[in-house]
């Protein structure tokens, strides 16, 4: 699913990632871990095309994303779900509209959107909550909405950047259980985290980064 060959990412004089060679199989669950500033978020940004590598080649789902022209970026992202630490929900839209956004942008008919949204809200434990607004939800519920949005168009890969970073223990476990269930349906899941306890509780492959280098895979 993901292949990286001698990938470097530099910001001026600073090297955020150094000579990364990596392979993640389809349907795998991986943690991207390491201390702050190790390059975890940079790696995810490269994967979802927000940044391009300074050097090297990377393939996501067979697509070379290292030199992807901007006009091809939307098509790549439609096959990808992204979850952020700060949820990135739209406050002026209700839960259903936030989740349905990923389908709306590809021109899905309204009735199909409504059906899919109801289904994924059920998966993340928010059945019947589509009409509520993000500000009325707890942090854990907001993150579950973000996860629902990430999976609503049935992507082959989900990238989560510190998805439990803003959540307390119980809520973090709930979110991890959802990500695990998504993985069990065959979706590749990459979670950037430095929460050792969570990694102990949900043991999967760890890709450990330090100072921009992959030190354990």
């Amino acid at each position: 699913m993901i292949r990286m060959y001698h990938v470097h990412k530099r910001y001026g004089e600073i090297s955020a990632l150094r000579d990364i060679n990596l392979r993640v199989a389809k349907g795998e669950f991986c943690y991207i871990t390491g201390p702050s500033g190790a390059g975890k978020s940079t790696l995810l940004k490269l994967l979802y095309g927000a940044e391009q590598p300074s050097e090297g080649k990377m393939l996501v789902g067979g697509v070379d994303v290292s030199r992807l022209p901007p006009r091809r970026l939307p098509a790549m992202r439609r096959n990808m779900g992204i979850v952020f630490q700060d949820f990135k929900l739209i406050p002026s839209r209700n839960v259903g509209e936030n989740v349905g956004l990923a389908l709306e942008v590809i021109g899905t008919p309204r009735e199909v959107i409504d059906r899919r949204v109801a289904a994924v809200l059920a998966i993340v434990g928010l059945r019947g909550r589509g009409g509520e607004y993000p500000r009325t939800l707890s942090g854990g519920e907001q993150q579950r909405v973000a996860v629902a949005r990430a999976i609503v168009n049935d992507p082959s890969i989900v990238l989560a950047d510190e998805p439990t970073g803003n959540l307390d223990g119980a809520m973090a476990i709930e979110v991890m259980e959802i990500l695990q269930s998504i993985n069990l349906r065959g979706t590749t899941v990459l979670v950037a985290t430095h929460d050792a306890g969570l990694m102990e509780r949900f043991p999967f492959r760890r890709l450990r980064f330090e100072h921009g280098k992959l030190v354990q895979s």
Binding site: R71, P74, R78, I90
Partner: peptide, 16 residues
């Protein structure tokens, strides 16, 4: 901007 950023992240085209 938050809404537009999310739209971009979920695969909205520049035209959309």
């Amino acid at each position: 901007r938050a809404e537009l950023e999310v739209q971009k992240l979920v695969g909205a085209t520049a035209t959309y």
